[in-house]
Design a protein around this nucleic acid. Structure first.
Lengths: 117, 117
DNA sequence: CTTCTCCGTTCCGGAACCGTATCATTCCGG
DNA sequence: CCGGAATGATACGGTTCCGGAACGGAGAAG
């Protein structure tokens, strides 16, 4: 299941994807924000602010702010944990799932055929 | 030379790299900034502000600001084009080359064995 | 009930970034 | 020589983000 990737290919792939996303004029996510979004969509729930902060080794306000931003874009949603009302559970949305899926398509397309401008 | 990558692998790879970079506490580059840096280091010179702006489909000030930031980190350097002094040529630096190379290593490592925390 | 701990949010001053518009310098054609 | 085009930098007003500290609500322990 390991992916075989050589140095030149790895960097070229990253560049192609970054350029494609930049050109598309989509919201310019930082590496941190991407890490948060992908963690929510790729790792099994539940996701809490505390847990995400520990997973990414950043402070809690960083997570709160990122969720504010992504919430405004409807990429994630927040719900109180009714079993322990101190917690906030971060949930996925349809829009977010589409966004992530589309992003995956961009990566695969760039991996398949290097963009030659 | 095409890289074979399936949907799940592509997103998982991106997440692993993003999380690794976030945890490392390194400068949190946005997708745009990454696109600029990698374009400078992977595509053949010369690189001008105008050219980079057109390549990424963004405004010139975006490039100028990104270069200001990366210049402060010594990842790139600027030089007047002596043959046409209106142009500024963006050049690579030793530090920048190391930064990009190390980033490539992270990608390859994440591709090789998925991080299982 | 009181206290202590845990969780997420908000506040604060400062920094970075955005898009648009404008500026200074340089080149070039008439 | 002179006016226009091109290039990169800068000014401006507004938004977002940062790290660290403080805060309020909710559970746990006594």
């Amino acid at each position: 299941m390991a992916v075989h990737l050589r140095p030149g290919e790895a960097l070229r792939l990253w560049q192609d994807v970054a350029v494609t996303e930049a050109r598309a004029g989509r919201p310019d996510l930082s590496m941190r924000q991407a890490a948060i979004l992908l963690t929510i969509y790729l790792e099994p729930p539940p996701h809490t602010i505390r847990g995400l902060a520990a997973r990414l080794n950043v402070s809690k306000p960083v997570i709160t702010r990122a969720l504010d931003m992504m919430g405004a874009l409807k990429l994630v949603s927040r719900h109180r944990d009714e079993s322990d009302r101190r917690n906030v559970l971060v949930k996925r949305t349809v829009e977010g799932a589409l966004f992530v899926e589309r992003f995956g398509d961009v990566i695969i397309a760039c991996a398949k055929e290097p963009t030659t401008p």
